[in-house]
Design a protein around this nucleic acid. Structure first.
Lengths: 230, 230
DNA sequence: TGACGTTGTCACGAATCTGTCACGGGGCTT
DNA sequence: AAGCCCCGTGACAGATTCGTGACAACGTCA
């Protein structure tokens, strides 16, 4: 969710205002007040989004956007144009140059954050939605349903993600650390033993359909999902 | 032009192959591996195309196609037959039964996607204003009217669009963000929790006819419209 | 203008989920 | 067999998430 955002704006007050709002929303902010600095930062840091002011000293925002789109390394970086003008002409010109979105000043902090979220979402690779079936257990990410031999299985969000990971990586031992990285995310800090508890919850959720044996303990190493005998 | 496509195929490997290709082409995929499941999904989800395997356990694809063509609600759903046999005899029988197109295995992903696009284009004109009926609930875009077991249901404009989207994309879980994009439009900035409120309004509007259970909460993910048990 | 319907937002509470701990059983090593 | 380590289990408090009622802003129409 948090993203690296480059704010290219030459007016200090506005730059500050924008940066404060973005940081408050949990994003990392890089700043530049001219095209040269901005160009270097884009190439080096490769931000997730560039917030680009229309008016820049020396070089217009449009020119800068064109340059970004022209270089291989930077051509896929989303750009949101920022301008005080509101006439339709500029809007079209901005989008044609390859801006992904367009905000006219003055804008509300909420709109700013929302637009950025929208652009990020559009770029985000969406996760696989293939359903999996192993040993009579079926899990379908699209409908978010799990059934054991046809009967429904009730799971909490974390248990669902855990089972999903297991079923897409079966027959293989995963350490608690690996499970935390893959299912919880490698940025969160939780005790390793927490995995045990969720394994237990997953097992007891599978118990009514008799599939709890699919989740196997490998003493000293971790856990494994397998339809074969333990 | 993303479309809802139902893949009826009992061989997991082939089903997977087909689904992967269709999803890669931007379509939504529902799956079934027997005629019974397929029948339910066709009636509920009313897919834009049915990809139907010739050989099915228990019931042949031909029989299934006949059944679809026999029922008022499903008689207009395009069917593409899928078969390993290549003899002329089957081809004729398949088309006579009402299949719109016919693909013999092995086939290239490109051919598959192309045929689907062709069928969709053929059906495209009137597709938008079709009325939908699921679990006793009927929604008619043309007359802008909703009835539950015959009794009228009063909905505001937003609730109507929300229900319309739900009924044209049933069974699958939609996040609040996706619902905002699809129902409100991806240029509108409203709080995600606003979705909750409209879900509530939709539910209480459906309550008098006893259909409020069709709108289901998937904790941690979003909402789902389904005639199946929660 | 005023009654009315619709919409987005908020605050509160209830239901549910999550992470952590302590306890105990059971296997493995020596 | 003793001791150590690993794992299962029940309990619990804090954190999330969701349902719900209320409300103000807005537009419409009489």
């Amino acid at each position: 969710m948090p993203a690296n955002i480059l704010v290219v704006e030459d007016e200090p007050a506005i730059q500050e205002l924008i940066a404060a709002n973005l940081q408050h929303a949990g994003h990392h902010v890089l700043r530049a007040d001219d095209a040269e600095t901005a160009g270097r930062l884009v190439r080096d840091a490769l931000p997730d989004v560039v917030l680009l002011d229309w008016m820049l000293p020396g070089q217009s925002g449009i020119q800068f956007a064109r340059k970004l789109r022209g270089e291989e390394r930077t051509k896929d970086v989303p750009i949101i144009m920022l301008t005080a003008r509101s006439d339709e002409q500029d809007k079209i010109l901005g989008l044609e140059t390859g801006a992904d979105d367009y905000i006219t000043k003055p804008f509300s902090p909420r709109e700013l954050v929302a637009r950025i979220k929208a652009v990020l979402r559009r770029r985000a690779p969406q996760m696989t939605e293939d359903s999996v079936e192993i040993g009579g257990l079926k899990l379908d990410p699209a409908t978010h349903r799990v059934t054991g031999d046809g009967r429904p299985v009730e799971l909490g969000p974390t248990e669902f993600r855990l089972l999903h990971f297991f079923m897409t990586h079966p027959e293989r031992v995963h350490s608690r650390t690996q499970l935390l990285d893959q299912v919880w995310g490698d940025h969160v800090f939780v005790e390793e033993r927490t995995v045990d508890v969720h394994i237990r919850r997953l097992r007891s959720a599978l118990e009514p359909t008799g599939h709890e044996g699919l989740v196997q303990t490998v003493r000293g190493s971790g856990y494994r999902f397998s339809s074969l005998q333990d």
